[in-house]
Simulated assay, not measured.
Amino acid sequence: MAGLLPKNLDLDLTLLRDLLALGQAGNLSQAARHRGITHPAFGRRIRALEDWAGTALVERGSRRSPLTDEGRKLAAAARQIEAILRNTRAVLAHSPEQALQTITIAAGRTLSHTLLPRLVADIRDACGDMIWKVKTTSLRPGLEMLRERWADFMLGHAPEGAMPPGMEDLLSCSVGRDALVAVSAPLVSGYPKYAVPQSPSQPRVPYLSYAPGMALGAILDNVLQRQACRDRLFTIYEADLADSIHAMVRQGVGLAWLPLSLIREDLLQGRIVRAGAKTEDIDIDVRLYTRQATLEDARTRGVWEAVSALYG
């Protein structure tokens, strides 16, 4: 096909699908097998696409990524083109709800209304309209949903420790950052009503904690166990919802570590205040998880490719 695709001719969508396959497979040989053609023929088709684009699209010899920056830009455009065509076909058929693809995502309760809306909006820009079904859950049940294929993806804070059995093919991509911040209701002076204890001699402080099984709780406990302050905290409230703990902090009940994404506005308005130094904030990674087996479906593979291109 090389030399058969002058720049003044319309572009064959087959070549764009070749590029998407290459971006997903990671090398020419695997992409050729996926597309059902020989390696040399696939290489000629990619070179023909490069001739049309007028630039290199493949990072030949690189182990980092099969596509150049220009290749990733064209692949993102290809996903949008396919999404536009799918949606247009649905409109022409007068039944868009039947043609739209459904994506099921399990998400932490806090992330479902902090980071998830932005993530879905970014994916829609890249992949077009889809039906999104969100199941709010905590880390372990969310991973179980992935394993049993009750969910295509899971959005969660990076877990501590080993993955559960049967998750050897788990894939993840970082899609955001957050931080756990020690906070308290303020005194009239603006100082915290409850501050993080800095030494064993300080009085014990009432503590609002996460329920067992929550990723935020596991991350926080792992850090606090290494600090002297943990023995000076006594739990008076436990919840599996950060919003509930947030409400109790505002009522002045105790000290808590809450996601910055959840409390940023309250901090700016002074409704709650920091209970420790900013340098002691606990950075946390937010990741989107899926399984290799899930990506056998073109529907979920397209979403994963978009996320990898946007955030990876």
Rank of each mutant, 00 (worst) to 15 (best):
V120P: 03
E97G: 03
S112V: 14
L74Q: 01
W132L: 08
T114K: 01
K135W: 08
T102I: 07
V134T: 13
I84P: 00
G61S: 04
A106L: 07
M130Q: 13
A106Q: 06
D122L: 04
R60V: 11
L67E: 03
A77V: 04
L115I: 09
P96N: 06
R109F: 03
L92Q: 14
P117K: 11
I131N: 11
A151W: 12
R72G: 02
E82D: 14
E97M: 08
L111K: 02
A99L: 15
R124Q: 14
T88N: 08
R72V: 09
L85R: 10
H113F: 13
I123Y: 10
M145C: 09
A77L: 08
A90C: 09
Q98T: 08
D122E: 11
D125K: 12
G108K: 05
S95L: 10
R140M: 14
A83M: 11
K135V: 15
A126D: 09
K73F: 03
R60G: 05
R64F: 05
M130I: 07
I84V: 11
G71Q: 02
E59W: 01
A90G: 15
M145R: 09
L139F: 14
A151L: 12
R109A: 05
L111N: 03
T88D: 03
E59R: 12
D122C: 06
S62K: 01
I123H: 07
